[in-house]
């Protein structure tokens, strides 16, 4: 298993290089931050200042050379210069990643637990009223645009705050700006209050698609011979469901959840924008609008590493869940 893991990591390196190189070329050719610098300031900067700026962000070098310098720099922990002065990209990246992880972790856990419960229930009671309702709700959330739902939740939060006269449900940012931190309890409730609405938003979207997967996988397993055999041997229904059926049904779900979580860790862009969280998603949007090449590359690198890592975890979990699979 260790040899397999090492091999997988080695194989992913060329893919990572090719992918970052393509994105680098696209970003470098998609706009001119130097021209933005020269035209967007009042009073207009001098020619020398513009030239110094171009040198500072390496815009005066050819693209291939820039890419090479960037990738060797990253290996030394240097993520390159930002178009914003006094912004340490490496520090920015990890602060934001922590913010996004706190946002995503709870949401994904809730979504996963609910998806398994409702998916299994839906499959066991196939074509019952409950199954139809769960399926319909699933379809509805799959069709609902996240931004629309998030704005609605935000409004509901504001309304609830007004009705109860409290400020518990935070709708802006990850914590209150002028919080008097007298006790850790106050700080904790403040964080929780800000987490609730974005967590619900993220959880419901993932929940909808994962329930569909669980249901489909469970239905396939329930119709198989070994489940019938287990029942025929006289094993209790509950035990057959959990130990025989669910364990196998979880296998396709691991791939889907791993990929979904990985991509959402790259930034829940819409959710972060609406609730004004300073996470990975906001970083991507700012970097793209300001054509901040190195900032965007830092974002890309971290999210690509997360995708690769989660893919690997999913494949390793396969071996744990399915005794037929062995990696050596």
């Amino acid at each position: 298993m260790l040899a397999y893991t090492v091999r997988r990591i080695l194989v992913s390196i060329p893919v990572l290089i090719a992918s970052t190189f393509i994105v680098f070329l696209v970003v470098v050719n998609s706009g001119d931050p130097v021209a933005n610098f020269a035209t967007s300031r009042q009073p207009a900067p001098s020619k020398a200042a513009v030239a110094a700026f171009a040198r500072h962000i390496h815009a005066d070098q050819p693209a291939v050379e820039r890419y090479w310098n960037w990738i060797t720099g990253v290996l030394h922990g240097d993520f390159g210069p930002s178009v914003q002065s006094n912004l340490d990209i490496g520090h920015d990246l990890f602060t934001r990643f922590r913010v996004t992880v706190t946002l995503v972790a709870a949401a994904m856990l809730i979504a996963l637990v609910l998806a398994v419960i409702f998916g299994v229930f839906s499959a066991i009671r196939q074509y019952s009223a409950a199954d139809y309702s769960i399926t319909f709700v699933g379809f509805l959330f799959l069709a609902m645009p996240v931004f629309w739902f998030a704005v609605l939740l935000k409004q509901a939060g504001i309304w609830l705050n007004e009705q109860t006269g409290s400020t518990f449900l935070g709708t802006i940012g990850e914590k209150s700006p002028y919080l008097e931190v007298d006790t850790w309890w106050n700080e904790f409730t403040d964080h929780m209050g800000h987490l609730i609405l974005p967590t619900i938003t993220l959880a419901l979207v993932s929940f909808a698609s994962w329930t569909r997967y669980t249901r489909a996988a469970m239905l396939e397993v329930l119709g198989s011979d070994y489940v019938r055999l287990a029942r025929a041997k006289g094993i209790r229904r509950g035990r057959v469901m959990t130990r025989h059926a669910l364990r196998t049904a979880l296998i396709p779900l691991t791939t889907v959840t791993a990929l979904d979580i990985a991509s959402i860790l790259g930034g829940a862009v819409v959710t972060e924008t609406i609730f004004q969280w300073h996470g990975m998603g906001e970083m991507l949007v700012t970097a793209a609008t300001t054509i901040d090449v190195y900032r965007l590359m830092a974002w890309l690198l971290l999210s690509a590493v997360v995708v690769i890592a989660f893919n690997l975890i999913a494949d390793l979990l396969y071996a744990v869940l399915d005794p037929r699979i062995r990696y050596d």
Binding site: S30, G31, A304
Partner: peptide, 19 residues
């Protein structure tokens, strides 16, 4: 095709559409 799948849709779309 695999390489195209690794490209982040949102990042590319954001960068290109801003232009």
């Amino acid at each position: 095709a695999d390489l195209v799948l690794t490209l982040p849709l949102l990042a590319i779309a954001l960068v290109i559409s801003s232009r």
